[in-house]
Write a protein that binds this DNA or RNA. Sequence first.
RNA 1: GGCGGGGUAGCCAAGUGGUAAGGCACGGCUCUGCAAAAGCUGCAUCGUCGGUUCGAUUCCGACCCUCGCCUCCA
Length: 465
Amino acid sequence: MRLFNTLTRSVQTFTPLDPAGKTVGMYCCGPTVHDFAHIGNFRTFVFADLVRRYLEYQGFSPVHVMNITDVEDKIIKRVHEAKTSLREFTGKFETAFLDDLTSLNCLQPHHTPRATEHVPQMVDLIGKLMSRGIAYQAPDKSVYFSIKNYQGCGCGYGQLVKLNFDEMRPDKRVASDEYEKESAADFALWKARVSEDGEVFWPSPWGEGRPGWHIECSAMSMNLLGPSFDLHLGGEDLIFPHHEDEIAQSEGATGQPFVKHWMHGAHLLVEGKKMSKSLGNYFTLRDLLAKGFSGREIRYLLLTAHYRESFNFTLDGLCGARVALSRIDECLGKLRQTAGNTSAAPEPTVLARIIESLDEDLNISGAWGVVFEWVRELNRALAAHELMPEQAAAALAAWVQMDTIFGIGAKADTEMPAELLVLLDDRNAARKAKDFKRADSIRDELKSQGWVIDDTPTGARLKKL
RNA sequence: GGCGGGGUAGCCAAGUGGUAAGGCACGGCUCUGCAAAAGCUGCAUCGUCGGUUCGAUUCCGACCCUCGCCUCCA
């Protein structure tokens, strides 16, 4: 399989570090648990899930790590406002986040380390950087990473993004930076305790304080996956400074290459605009579920576009996703009827075409194109009664296989309430008696209860709207 | 100002040096007591202008528009 690597800015064949070519260390920057995660966050996590599922499909054994950032400026502020404890505050959102992943049918990562539970590892890493002269403690007692000294060691800063510090337009945030760094480009490894931190602090050789943002990912990823590992994913906004700084800290401390292959998911727009609460286009996953959309519809929509292209997420698109999925569901339902108890090996052609598409940097739009062409062919054959039970079974088996990658699943069966079945029988009787007025009124009645009658040549059935 | 993405039908979105997948919407048809549902089917010359080429949407150049990053950010 070939994947785009942000380090080389090119699509290249993916080969794991594991000499056996089997195990893949995969780290995905996880959520900061200060609120419910929004749909943009989930685009990235669904993307990571696709990467993992595809690796597994291709016979690799990924070890999927996703951190939980549970200490950070915004969290501390909110903990203070809510007059609660850090753990209580973040625990709520962490649970919600993992539930949301389940709603989207994302496989749970194998490890979800919390930053607050890896402070000793971070302190250890900072200690290494101090001893190598790459980190320093400023007069404000905070510890910073010295990019100048790092570069002096022959290390490269700016591996993921071309940087020209002279040409950079100093941002207001830099200008107003109150930290006492030696250089504006340096970043905090350890933030000295201040009164606003309340009870949120840990001991360290440099005094009480809390870790900087970037250090947690270096510490936890290397702790679980070793100093060098295969894949590191995240949203495109993390390329700089977060991932650049992770590389600097990690390679500065170990002297070894940190990550072989970096992948970044593009952001999404909502209704054509950057998501913002003031525009009213800011959706958490929960907002969308509350509007009646299902996790699989949302997952499908997020998976329709290539991960490196920005994607315009719209409620209209979500309605379209529902219709598109029902096209697949209808076809699968008919296949099941035709297949009966017959079983067969998966039909290989469609799978090969899907793999061909996904192998080239996860071209999932192309893969969906294959799926829908396949559905049309099957529908044609089904309508002409030309599909043998063995063929239907082979198609179903192929779907099961491809769905281990897509993770769309089958539509949940909804039980038909007995009283509605009675109404349906009444309607059938009315139709037989040519009492169409009564038949239609029953149809309206059922519709008002959210069920639509599907008249087929073999009889009527009910479908949930 | 620096760096990096994009501009393909009403909308979303693949792709290719030889006249453009797929989904939604829309039209037609089949089915139906009528509908609905479902199915089939129709529907684009690829931002603009030049260049290279037998041939470009695809390569090169210029331009226009748009989005993102430049130390909070998926």
